[in-house]
Amino acid sequence: MSDDNFFALPAFKPAEALVQLKRQLRDLKLTERGHRYELDGQAVVEVMADDSAIEARVVKRPARTPEWTVQRLGASTEVRRFLDTLKTQLARWRSDE
């Protein structure tokens, strides 16, 4: 009996991952405004989920009219990598103030 899926990762559930991602964004001291998160009154992150993935938009740098980069997160590892990158960016933005 061959069980090829023995070590398979569990299926990615975007709705559940979005709840956890939002909690982690609040833990980073970002202000939540619906699906948008702000740093010092300026939008820096937007997150939304569909049936297969989370769409995350991050500003290149905080500004009144920001330039956004879009990422599609379709696995837990991508969500963790997104958060790690965002933490680095937030630290840099906060130190620039």
Results as ranks from 00 to 15, higher is better:
D4P: 15
A8Y: 05
F6C: 07
Q42Y: 05
E67S: 15
M1T: 14
E55V: 14
E16C: 00
E97K: 04
W93T: 07
V58F: 08
D96A: 12
T77H: 15
A15H: 09
T85D: 14
R72V: 15
R26A: 07
D4I: 03
N5T: 13
R23F: 04
D4Y: 12
R80Q: 15
R92S: 11
V19Q: 07
T69K: 14
A53Q: 11
P14C: 09
Y37I: 06
A8V: 01
F6K: 08
L73C: 05
N5K: 13
N5S: 12
R26Q: 11
P66I: 12
L25P: 04
T85R: 08
R61Q: 14
Q24W: 01
P10S: 07
L83P: 02
E32D: 06
K29V: 09
M48V: 12
F12Q: 00
K13G: 07
M48K: 13
A56S: 10
A49P: 05
P62R: 14
E97N: 09
D40Y: 03
E67I: 13
D50F: 08
F82A: 12
R81S: 13
A75H: 13
P10L: 10
V19W: 00
V79G: 13
Q24G: 01
S2C: 05
T65S: 14
L90E: 06
A91E: 11
T65C: 09
R36I: 03
V45T: 02
W93E: 03
R33E: 06
S95V: 04
T31G: 00
A49T: 09
W68F: 11
P14L: 10
E55C: 07
Q42P: 01
R36P: 00
E38F: 00
D50M: 06
V44Y: 02
P62Y: 00
L25S: 06
A53Y: 10
N5A: 13
T88K: 09
K22D: 08
F82P: 11
Q20S: 11
V58E: 03
K13W: 05
L28Y: 00
K87N: 09
S76M: 15
A8T: 10
L25E: 05
K13S: 09
L28Q: 06
E67A: 14
G41K: 04
Q89I: 06
T85E: 15
L30M: 02
A56R: 01
L21H: 04
A17P: 07
T85Y: 05
S76N: 15
A11I: 14
A43Y: 00
A91F: 06
K13M: 08
Y37N: 01
K13A: 09
M1G: 15
H35I: 04
F82S: 12
D40M: 04
E78F: 10
R23I: 00
R94P: 02
L25K: 06
F6H: 07
V47K: 01
A49L: 02
Q42W: 02
H35R: 02
K60S: 11
T77L: 15
A8C: 10
D4K: 12
Q71V: 11
A63M: 12
K29E: 07
T88P: 04
D51H: 09
V59T: 15
V58S: 09
E46K: 11
T65V: 13
F82T: 14
D40L: 02
